[in-house]
Amino acid sequence: MDVMFILIGASITVAMTFLFAFIWAVKSGQYEDRYTPSVRILFEENIQSETENKKL
């Protein structure tokens, strides 16, 4: 079952990548504001917003 080690190695590498990404995200203040980002994406300053606002 040598391949187990390849898989565990690959999985751990992926997991470590995510772990560092997570640490970076927390430390760099990505998650200091846990509300505004959800609202911000709703407001796109569309330059031709007249046509944009039409609903389906």
């Binding site: 079952m1 040598d2 080690f5 390849i6 190695g9 690959a10 751990i12 590498t13 470590m16 990548t17």
Partner: peptide, 21 residues
């Protein structure tokens, strides 16, 4: 470090451990 650990974990057993099938 991660890559080295990952590589070591992958490669060393391939040389050292006999397949347990």
């Amino acid at each position: 470090v991660v890559v080295i650990i990952g590589g070591a974990v992958e490669l060393i057993p391939t040389f050292m451990i006999k397949s347990n099938i």
